[in-house]
Design a protein around this nucleic acid. Structure first.
Length: 1043
RNA sequence: ACGGCGGUAGCUCAGUGGUAGAGCAUCUCGUUUACACCGAGUGGGUCGGGGGUUCGAAUCCCUCCCGCCGUACCA
């Protein structure tokens, strides 16, 4: 054997061997009926392994390997998700690298998707290979992908996921659990798609708050009165305006009202009046009502809030409650709209609405209230313009240049008394897209939603009842409130990469008011013309039908047109790109019919919803989708519900909660028995690792440097439940050393012929105390490891194994075994070889789930084996192997050695010097222990000989032990004063301890109320300490006599 | 602001009612039948502060202080 384990060379070789032998396959090494299954949290297909993945997958691999070795029918299901936004972003960026490439929009949907699949083909395997480097023992033959089987997927990308996703959508749609509606959503102007509020990061940004005057309509005035807490009037003036503050002046263009709190006396006189939005062409200044609502906080700002329902979530709620129109001001890229009618027309209509006309949602959405000269401007540019125009008009609230509210501007003011507009410098929380990093715009758009209220119940009940257990428990406190206050889940995304929503739209030809003049059920020219011009085609709504495919959706549309007059009711359903094309196609078809009079050529064009589903909608089906659902596969029967989900707390909302809801909604069962939620891996200072901070530790680099086992062991040993990991390379190096330590223990064993004979399959029968002792210690650690892993206490398992392997086996047992291995007692030698072999095998086995590579390598290097360690048999031996007498004896030996070493070191006895030892009194137990282990003690404590004496000679170092007092007569070497000091120090510590013990025992209440075994233990402890104290005092007295 | 978590040795953390532990780092010594990626030894803590419950509190309760993470934020 080499001196160290060559991780770099061995890891790929071993992994390949496992994989080629099919060791990871579902059910491999199964020897019992129970199943154990884990679904990997699917990493992004374009992603690469980061520390969080390394941690997450190490824990999963430990559970999987442990169960596989225990003979469970085990499945670790791997796969990736298609990561809609992220992947689309990556591919667009790749395309942009070469200016010659067409952009996404230029090449069109189909061509772009081909590029995405190409990219997936190229880079999709990256993360898989990285997981392999970590040692992840997933069943790769089952690798799943959330876009598998989608239309346009290239060969080799077949699979059930697309069908599963579409089926679920269709089912939920038909049950009414999915609906479409115009709602305010988070809109990413860069990607031009809706995003989830979970994908929005609120970041504090330096912002401004402007204060503007909204003049009352018709120049009306009122007495504006402010009072302090006592009701004393502090301000009274006549105003012809209401003061409004805003951080987003550009949205004023879309204001629908000004709201004040109903209790706000200051504004009571003007509630119900109209006021003017102080921006836009003078001729068409819009007037909006002053309303009351509970939302405005009278103590904040002016107490009056402008209501822009289409661009602010709070305002949206107010506008909804009060039937205030919500005017959308921006287009999908965050520029002010330049579609629709001119400003004057729209403003006129808006005024009618403000004056009380009824209005419809679609009509309002069609109105463009952006003044013509501002149309097309970027939203931030528009803000500047609006501010400038209002200020120029004198409608900004003014203050003096020295007003501290102005922030830095105030400090820099040359003339602090000069009048300036009140623009407060104010930190504001601004929403940013977590991918695009641009400011998110609340936007009123048509989107698809899951009616989560109706499917959330079982997901909550499951955790409440314990049907699914969330560990650590504190994470339930994250799960519950979120689900209890769940919002509708917006599942549509305006992207191309994803599962396209299986809904088709057709023109609504059953326009109300249309009549067939002759009542003959046939359309003539006049009627057709009317249908085209005035009928539903352009302005009326659309008819929507949902089905898994275009074929399946046709019957719905045929029903739809069955009632309209002949011959259109017999039109063929065809699919076109969008509504515009549908109108054109229908018009053309009708025109051709006019000439040909051939009804078989008539078509009714329908178009598919262009949006795709949120990636989390498909990954919400991960537990069943990966097992082949909707097919009732064998795997599904066997491995679902799954056993454990191991995941980071950051995706409890994103993923865990949604899987819970979806699995119950779709198959009516829990997706997993246990959810183990782990913390975040941080850098050694506790900072979140991020590229911008440059504190990212790359797991692959660490694996290169220290080996996968060391990285895995480090992560495991730090996996205390519910706490973040602060990772330092120093620690990883330490665990690399641990591997080397084990390696060298095996090397030592090899040198001593330990592996010459076949490996024992059962704990060897042993008569030597050391062997009996280490066998018992092994049984202890096995129980500890099993208990720890059962409770998901990964760190306890790792630390127990570390302490056992290094602290017990390598430090003591190997040393104790040396004399036996090299001694001339052939029987003892053989027994010790057998025992050491067995103990090392146990170390390899128990450590394998955490450190699979080095243990497999050692397993292979230490003799012929019937199977690889990955399929080794996990031990089940128990406390029957523990021999209390051997334990006591070896602990006594260890304490004598340690105490002797300690005394020697403190007294500066040269380390290499073998010294004589004297014993003055020894009880039978101590005597027996000494005699049985004299060689060991003498060797390890560097004792030349032991002789009995009636009393310690002058200048002796005293070493107390249980049942014996030892001494090292080293008068010529040691300093008497130093020995006195040493003894006194020890006595001091003892005295403190004794004080506590006596105090407790002397307290009658202690004996009364404490449990008996505690009292007993305390008494025994006191006796032992007292005897030690007596020994030391005697020694001290003797030294004092000497002087 | 609310919620969660945390404050224990120089550092990173275990320890959840029986009187404080580990690893790493420090310092000292050391090439002795594997291992310097090593061995032996040593120092180091009123367990964030205060109060309470208890025979006994790092541990349970109350309160305050500090840090981190979420969520919501006020136009």
């Amino acid at each position: 054997m080499d001196k160290t384990f060559d991780a770099a060379a061995a890891e790929s070789r071993l992994y390949k061997a496992w994989e080629e032998a099919g060791c990871f396959k579902a059910g491999a090494n199964a020897s019992r009926p129970e199943t154990f299954s884990i679904m990997i949290p699917p990493p992004n297909v374009t992603g690469s392994l980061h520390m969080g993945h390394a941690f997450n997958n190490t824990l999963q691999d430990i559970l999987i390997r442990w169960h596989r070795m225990r003979g469970f029918d085990t499945l670790w299901q791997p796969g990736q998700d298609h990561a809609g936004i992220a992947t689309q972003m990556v591919v667009e960026r790749e395309l942009a690298k070469d200016k010659a490439n067409a952009t996404r929009r230029e090449m069109g949907r189909e061509a772009f998707l081909e590029k995405v699949w190409d990219w997936k083909g190229q880079s999709g395997g990256t993360i898989i290979n990285q997981l392999k480097r970590l040692g992840a023992s997933c069943d790769w033959s089952r690798n799943a992908f959330t876009m598998s089987g989608a239309p346009g997927a290239p060969a080799g990308e077949d699979g059930n996921f697309h069908d599963a996703v579409i089926k679920v959508f269709v089912d939920m749609y038909s049950k009414g659990l999915i609906y479409r509606g115009k709602r305010l959503v988070n809109w990413d102007p860069h990607f031009e798609t809706a995003i989830s509020d979970l994908e929005v990061e609120n970041i504090e940004t330096a912002g401004h708050m402007w204060h503007f005057k909204y003049p009352l309509a018709g120049g009306q005035t009122y007495e504006y009165i402010e009072k302090d807490e006592d009701g004393t009037v502090t301000l009274r003036e006549t105003r012809d305006y209401i003061s409004i503050a805003t951080t987003r002046p550009e949205t004023m263009l879309g204001d629908g009202a000004v709201a004040v709190h109903p209790s706000d006396e200051r504004y009571a006189p003007i509630v119900g009046m109209l006021c003017e939005i102080p921006v836009g062409p003078k001729d068409h200044r819009r007037l909006i009502p002053i309303i009351t609502d509970e939302y405005p906080d009278p103590t904040f700002g002016s107490g009056a809030v402008k209501i822009t329902g289409a661009h602010d979530f709070n305002d949206y709620a107010v506008a909804s409650r009060n039937n205030i129109p919500m005017y959308r001001l921006m287009n999908t890229s965050g520029h002010l709209r330049d579609d629709g009618y001119d400003y004057a027309t729209c403003a006129t209509r808006a005024q009618e609405i403000a004056n009380g006309d009824s209005f419809g949602e679609n009509e309002v959405d069609g109105m463009n209230l952006v003044p013509d000269h501002l149309r097309g401007l970027d939203r931030f540019e528009a803000r500047k313009q609006v501010v400038a125009e209002i200020t120029a008009e004198g409608l900004a609230v003014m203050t003096t240049a020295g007003d501290p509210r102005l922030g830095r501007a105030a400090a820099k003011a040359e003339d602090p008394d000069a009048p300036v507009p009140l623009v407060e410098a104010k930190p504001i929380m601004q929403p940013f897209g977590d991918r695009s990093k641009v400011v998110i715009e609340p936007m009123l758009t048509d989107q698809w939603f899951v009616d989560t209220d109706r499917i959330v119940g079982p997901a909550l009940d499951a955790v409440r009842s314990g049907e699914t257990q969330i560990l650590p428990e504190q994470d339930q406190k994250v799960y519950f409130p979120w689900l209890e206050n769940i919002e509708p889940w917006c599942i549509s995304r305006q992207l191309w990469w994803g599962h396209q929503i299986p809904v088709w739209y057709g023109l609504d030809l059953s326009a109300p008011g249309f009549s067939d003049d002759e009542g003959d059920g046939e359309l003539d020219m006049v009627e057709l013309g009317r249908l085209l011009q005035d009928g539903g085609m352009v302005h009326a709504g659309e008819k929507a039908h949902c089905a898994a495919s275009f074929e399946d959706v046709q019957p719905g549309f045929l029903d739809e047109i069955a009632d309209i007059p002949t011959p259109l009711n017999h039109a063929r359903i065809i699919e076109v790109a969008d509504k515009h094309e549908a109108i054109a196609t229908l018009a053309r078809s009708l025109a051709e019919y006019e000439i040909s009079q051939d009804p078989t050529q008539l078509v009714y064009p329908v178009w598919r919803d262009p949006d795709v589903l949120d990636t989390w909608f498909s990954s919400g089906l991960w537990p069943i989708g990966t097992l082949g659902w909707p097919e009732q596969t064998e795997a599904l029967q066997k491995y679902f519900p799954t056993s454990v989900l191991v995941t980071g707390f950051d995706i409890i909302f994103f993923w865990v909660a949604r899987m819970m809801m979806m699995q119950y909604a779709v198959v009516g069962e829990r997706p997993f028995d246990t959810v183990y939620v782990h913390a975040l891996v941080r850098d050694e200072k506790g900072k979140k690792m991020s590229k911008s901070l440059g504190n990212v530790l790359d797991p692959l680099e660490l694996i290169d440097e220290y080996g996968a086992d060391a990285v895995r062991f480090t992560l495991t040993s730090m996996a205390a439940m519910g706490r973040d990991l602060k990772l330092s390379t120093q620690r990883i190096a330490g665990y690399r050393n641990f591997g080397t330590k084990l390696w060298n223990a095996a090397r030592f064993a090899e040198m001593n012929g330990v592996f010459a004979e076949p490996a024992p399959t059962a704990p060897p029968a042993a008569s030597a105390t050391v062997n009996r002792w280490i066998i018992g210690e092994t049984a202890r650690v096995r129980a500890e490891v099993d208990a720890a892993l059962t409770a998901f206490r990964f760190n306890d398992a790792a630390n127990a194994l570390y302490a056992f392997t290094w602290g017990k086996v390598c430090d003591w047992y190997v040393e104790f075994a040396k004399p036996l291995l090299s001694g001339d007692d052939a029987v003892a030698q053989a027994e010790t070889r057998r025992t050491m072999r067995w103990v090392l095998d146990q170390c390899f086995t128990l450590l394998h789930p955490i450190m699979p590579f080095i243990t497999e390598e050692l397993w292979d290097a230490t003799g012929p084996r019937s199977k690889m360690l990955i399929h080794g048999d996990w031990p089940a031996y128990g406390p029957e192997l523990i021999d209390e007498a051997a334990d006591r004896e070896m602990n006594w030996v260890i304490s004598v050695i340690e105490n002797t070493r300690s005394a020697r070191a403190q007294m500066h006895v040269p380390a290499g010097l073998h010294v004589p030892m004297i014993v003055t009194q020894m009880d039978p137990a101590a005597k027996a222990a000494w005699e049985a282990n004299a060689t060991l003690i003498q060797r390890l404590a560097r004792i030349e000989s032991l002789s009995e004496a009636a009393a310690m000679p002058k200048g002796t170092i005293t070493i107390p032990a249980e049942g014996a007092t030892f001494g090292l007569p080293l008068a010529d070497i040691i300093d008497i004063d130093a020995e006195k000091a040493r003894l006194e120090k020890t006595l001091g510590k003892l005295a403190k301890e004794l004080g506590g013990l006596r105090g407790r025992l002397n307290n009658p209440k202690f004996a009364e109320s404490a449990p008996e075994e505690v009292v007993e233990e305390t008494r025994a402890n006191l006796a032992a300490r007292e005897s030690e104290e007596a020994q030391l005092k005697e020694a001290l007295a003797r030294l004092s006599e000497v002087g």
